[in-house]
């Protein structure tokens, strides 16, 4: 046997993580063996804790420690605008810029029949429920500018617009500070298509 059984098991578990191949898994496993018991226990505890204590916010479906997440609980935020994103990490990205002060809703994925993902697999029902409460006036669809992101945005717009809400989609175009000659052509094409008058 190449590795002692507990080591082999640890490597096997680490290999399941995204972005970790067999080599990295081995390196991480050997590293963990070298750490102190206290450090190793802290890592194990924090994984256990995260699994135990975290859940989805009852309102926005973001990952939260409480029934209602901090953003939803913050009453100083704009209660009339709602930004729809695919994943919890998208909220973190938008929050970092400190510009947006409205509500969020996390779909936990995008429509993709190839992967068996339709509206029932996403948090669409929860979104419609929130919109039905009547406080939200504008919905910003902030899904990625991919085929699946566009399709999901279109699907939601078809459902939401008839209710008379304002619906918008994030703009896509040239990254700020980029050089035209080195921009990828897909970005350049959409930047041209969505150019704006000056």
């Amino acid at each position: 046997m190449l590795f002692a059984r507990p080591l082999a098991e640890l490597i096997a578990e680490l290999e399941k993580l995204p972005g970790v191949g067999p080599k990295s898994a081995q390196r991480l496993a050997y590293h963990l063996l070298k750490t102190t018991d206290a450090d190793a226990n802290r890592l194990a505890d924090s994984i256990r804790n995260a699994k135990l204590k975290l859940r989805f916010c009852a309102k926005c479906q973001n990952i939260s420690e409480n029934e209602i997440c901090e953003i939803c609980a913050d009453l100083r935020r704009d209660q009339h605008v709602l930004c729809v994103v695919a994943e919890p990490r998208d909220i973190a990205a938008i929050e970092r810029i400190n510009e947006y002060r409205g509500q969020y809703h996390v779909l936990h994925g995008l429509m993709s029949p190839m992967d068996g993902i339709g509206p029932e697999q996403l948090r669409v029902r929860e979104l419609l429920g929130r919109l039905g409460e009547g406080q939200i006036e504008e919905v910003i669809l902030a899904t990625n500018p991919t085929i699946e992101g566009d399709a999901t945005a279109l699907y939601l717009a078809k459902l939401i617009k008839p209710a008379g809400l304002k619906v918008s989609r994030l703009a896509h175009g040239m990254p700020v500070g980029a050089e035209l000659d080195y921009a990828d052509s897909a970005t350049l094409i959409s930047a041209l298509e969505y150019r704006r008058e000056m």
């Binding site: 429509m111 509206p119 566009d150 399709a151 699907y155 078809k158």
Partner: peptide
């Protein structure tokens, strides 16, 4: 069964 909207979003593209 899939509703018409589920088709329309791909057909649009």
């Amino acid at each position: 069964h899939h509703p018409a909207e589920s088709f329309e979003i791909w057909e649009d593209q």
